[in-house]
């Protein structure tokens, strides 16, 4: 009987561990390199077969083979998007316009539960957090108020003591129609990524002093808030992990 009780307790521990593993594995979403290589090999063979078929039928019209080559690239790109769900757009959605607003330090960790769950790279700490207030339209929306009374957006800034070369992450979110300091991404022209089931617009640029780091930007909506994330001198993977931890 005692042995049976031990077995039952082992089963409880085992079941909880297996369920935890199933939940954790969703976070990693990693693909087997072997599977990807085999799939790309199969794709390449199919693409070659199609190319040969088309060339043999259209030897006298070179423009057709160019179209086929473009279609194969499209197939590979779509396969990449489907498998990995991460697509970076070129350019930036950061606005260079001066923001007319008033900043106030605030404890956003107490106000928003998700702040505790944000997964930032080792060594970074929440160096600043606060709210941006704007002036409001008054007198039948004709004039702007003198005071900055309208809460517009929240910002979290993560950094370390190396202000010049260290990583830096700024997370801004708002319930308003747009985020100050961020241009709204063009829905049609910019393909979306899918992270934890949510649509995200991603942008990246190079960091010249270290090729392994990027400047990353992300825009998405969650729970009624619009989010704009701006990260500098950061690993691409760490950038994606920040987004995943917010989009849980």
């Amino acid at each position: 009987m005692e042995n049976n009780n031990d077995l039952k307790e082992n089963v409880k521990k085992d079941v909880k561990e297996k369920i935890a593993i199933l939940n954790a594995s969703k976070e990693f979403e990693m693909k087997s390199e072997k599977t990807r290589k085999v799939m790309y090999q199969i794709l390449s063979v199919c693409a070659l077969f199609v190319l040969c078929l088309v060339i043999s039928k259209n030897v006298e019209s070179p423009s057709n083979s160019i179209k086929v080559a473009k279609n194969n690239n499209q197939i590979q790109k779509e396969q990449y998007i489907q498998e990995n769900n991460i697509v970076f757009n070129e350019g930036s959605i950061k606005s260079l316009e001066d923001i007319d607003g008033k900043w106030e330090e605030a404890n956003l960790e107490e106000e928003f539960e998700f702040v505790d769950e944000i997964n930032v790279p080792d060594g970074l700490y929440l160096s600043r957090q606060g709210k941006l207030f704007e002036r409001e339209y008054i007198n039948n929306d004709v004039e702007l108020s003198d005071d900055y009374t309208k809460l517009w957006q929240y910002t979290l800034i993560y950094a370390n003591d190396d202000k010049e070369d260290g990583p830096y992450i700024e997370i801004t979110f708002t319930k308003e129609k747009y985020i100050l300091g961020c241009l709204m991404p063009d829905e049609e022209k910019m393909p979306s990524s899918i992270i934890n089931g949510k649509e995200v617009k991603l942008f990246k640029g190079k960091y010249m002093r270290d090729e392994s780091k990027i400047t990353g930007e992300a825009f998405f909506e969650k729970d009624g808030y619009k989010f704009y994330i701006e990260a500098h001198r950061i690993d691409e993977e760490d950038f994606i992990n920040v987004l995943k931890s917010i989009l849980k």
């Binding site: 954790a24 976070e27 990693f28 990693m30 693909k31 087997s32 390199e33 072997k34 990807r36 990449y80 498998e83 990995n84 991460i86 505790d116 997964n119 080792d122 993977e237 994606i240």
Partner: peptide
């Protein structure tokens, strides 16, 4: 809180490293 976050970060890194050693990776 920082202790818990550090532990979680460490565990995730271990899992990720072992997955990569096992032939898994991000595309």
């Amino acid at each position: 809180a920082s202790n818990v976050k550090t532990i979680l970060h460490r565990v995730r890194k271990k899992i990720k490293r072992n997955l990569e050693d096992g032939g898994y990776g991000y595309g």
